[in-house]
Simulated assay, not measured.
Amino acid sequence: MLAHLILKDGECFRGDAPLGKGGSGEVVFTTAMAGYQEILTDPSFAGQMVCMTFPEQGVYGVHADLGEASRPWAAGFVCRRLSLHPDHTRAEGDLGSWLKRHRIPVITDVDTRALTQHVRDRGAQPGLIWTEADGSLAAGVAAASHLPDMSGQALAGEVSCDDRYEILRPGARFRVAVLDGGIKASILTQLSASGLDLEVFPWDAPASELTAARFHGLFLSNGPGDPAALPGMRREVEACIGRLPIFGICLGHQLLGQAFGGSTFKLKFGHRGANQPVLDLATRRIEITAQNHGFAVDEASLPPEIQVTHRHLSDDTVEGLRHRTLPIFSIQHHPEASPGPHDARGAFGRFIRMMEDHHA
């Protein structure tokens, strides 16, 4: 079915809606060349329609062990070509059928290079997949102009777990509270593999539960939306400071920045992909990292007791923080890297060492 991807600024990109379904969300792009299933199931993509810059998608099908959640969270999928006949011996189905089963809007045959360049120039913005069955193109342009922006959207509650649950590790030395703002399954896998017992809490858990005496540390997860729209979550994180070692990533990193007294701001088009260069300021080592975020911590707003530890080499934005005296650190990127390189996985070991030192 003929369709258009219409951005809020009125720009239109012609394509095809093979599933015959429209939808809306913030239009963003990722530079990852593979990993479409992990990307689509990443809760941090909630409310966003993902443009894949690599032209071929679906070539290896879908696999039960590649999901980062039990369902896709992305609001839509934009690509150049979608393969309906996967070429992989262990494929459990094709991507198109999987997307149809989960009712995820798809638009194919889009000039994704032109779309990516437009988003880079004009910024990530809301858009909609408008099929010919939805009405005239002019009507679609009018509808897109009223779409809400991502700034101000609190989405962590939509993707977080409903109830506390445990992931136990035989022989674990430490028990860690995990605040779920939209955590990926592979992050939990890496934490567990590090030798930790985990208790995962919903996004609105109080500090009194997260810092109970049985816990040796606190992990703050990734998640979608605007961190500034989560004042209650920030207050609970702030109440945890100084009570136990804390490690935050992505949304958790941003919430820590705010809890320290800093602020966050929306990036023009964000960092999304598996090849984002980050400089560790202490070691001068460059890590190639996996990232998915549209907001960043404002360095100028941070108090003196907070040290910037990592920087993004493309735009010099803050990629890591540490408290100068308390056992607290955070990184903006995803150390579990699913999909992506494993350069940053040492952060999990750093968390373990921090708890060892604190509880020695």
Rank of each mutant, 00 (worst) to 15 (best):
I288W: 00
H312T: 02
A300H: 08
S301E: 00
V318A: 08
S301K: 03
R324P: 07
G320V: 03
E305Y: 08
R324W: 12
I306K: 13
L302C: 09
S301N: 06
A290V: 00
A296D: 15
P304F: 11
G294L: 14
V308G: 07
S301F: 06
T325Y: 01
A290G: 11
T325H: 13
Q307S: 06
Q291F: 01
G320I: 14
R324S: 14
P303M: 05
R311Y: 06
E287P: 01
L313S: 02
V318Y: 00
P304T: 03
A296F: 12
A290T: 15
H293G: 07
F295W: 13
L313P: 09
E299D: 15
S301V: 04
V308C: 08
S314D: 13
P303I: 00
I288P: 01
L326C: 03
T325D: 13
R311L: 13
H323L: 07
V297T: 06
R311G: 02
H312L: 04
G320N: 09
D315V: 11
H312Q: 03
Q307D: 09
T325K: 04
V308W: 07
S301C: 09
P303K: 06
V297I: 13
E287C: 08
F295Q: 10
E299Y: 03
Q307P: 00
H323M: 07
L313W: 04
A290D: 05
N292H: 12
P304K: 05
V297H: 09
G320R: 09
P303F: 00
H310D: 05
S301T: 08
D316E: 15
V297D: 02
A300T: 14
E319T: 00
I306N: 12
E305W: 11
V318E: 02
V318I: 06
L302Y: 04
R311F: 04
H312I: 02
I306W: 10
R311P: 11
N292W: 14
A296R: 08
E287V: 00
Q291I: 10
L313G: 03
F295M: 10
R324I: 11
E299R: 12
S301D: 00
L302P: 02
Q291T: 14
R322G: 05
Q291C: 12
E305L: 03
D316M: 10
S301L: 01
P327N: 10
H323T: 12
I288S: 03
T325S: 15
F295S: 11
T309A: 10
T289Y: 01
T325M: 03
G320E: 14
T309D: 10
H312M: 10
P327H: 04
H310E: 14
L313F: 02
E299Q: 09
R324Y: 04
V318R: 08
D316F: 04
P303V: 02
H323Y: 08
P327W: 01
L326V: 11
S301H: 01
L321C: 02
H323Q: 07
A296T: 12
T289D: 02
T309F: 06
E299T: 01
I288K: 04
